[in-house]
Amino acid sequence: MTLEILSYGFMQRAIISGIAIAILCSVVGLFMVLRRYSLFGDAIAHSSFGGIAVGMLVGIYPLWTAYAVSLVSALIITRIRYRLKISGDASVAVLLSSGIAIGLVLISISGGFTIDIFSFLFGSILLVSTNDTILILVLTGIILVVILLLYRQLLYSTFNEEQAKVSGIPVEKINYLIVFLAGVVVVTSIQLVGILLISALFVIPNITAIMYGKGFKQTALLSIGFAVFSVVVGILASYVLDITPSGTIVLVSLAIFGISIGIKSLGKLPITKSLKH
């Protein structure tokens, strides 16, 4: 049965794209979670809703306008945050609500909700085209290379901004970069789990991995493992059970998280303080 499913072209594209997106969300999400930007992914995803509405209204492929609107708003909100010293959660709230508000108004102007809008809200990984798959793979490659090249700067400024600054790292530029990368990853991932569930892929595999990993690289690899497992099992299970892939993927990752908490409370894991904070 499984092998037969894997012979379908749409399933191959879904799994390949899903694995690439899982890797991206884990790696970029780990930096975001450790910077206490966990909900920033959610906020960018919601602002992309406005971008999608713009695309639908003017007749451009909605994902392109989603990239443009999300990235611009993420960078603007980061700038405002620096200038006005607004707290992280408040800036997330501004970005999140403004994206949805703009999107709702534009969608009502363009004639209301359509099937296309729902596919962006809840994901449509089984409908990913060959071109989409190629785009996802290229973006994955570029983002991973950027992260590998700037690994020390990203890690150091995530660990402690002041010490990173004293070591000559351009912390503000690195902060803009990570927000920019998160924006690209979020919009790319919309096809997998949709706007409403994107932050789950950013956060859940990472907080699960933090419970186990001693070092950063080990934690990142564990997170990738959990995310890839969730995506592959989620896609296959959703097809077999005829249920939505996005929700199934998130539920699988939640199950891994729940099992980890259970194991931890049974004392089979080294005690970590991660969940107490």
Binding site: N160, V166, Q218, T272, H277
Partner: peptide, 26 residues
């Protein structure tokens, strides 16, 4: 310069080993 702050502020659950922390400076 090598700098040691009063009490470095970092997340207590930050997943980095002692060696990874030292390596950040290189």
């Amino acid at each position: 310069i090598g700098y040691v702050p009063q009490k470095p502020v970092f997340e207590n659950n930050f997943p980095a080993t002692v060696k990874e922390i030292v390596r950040m400076q290189l």
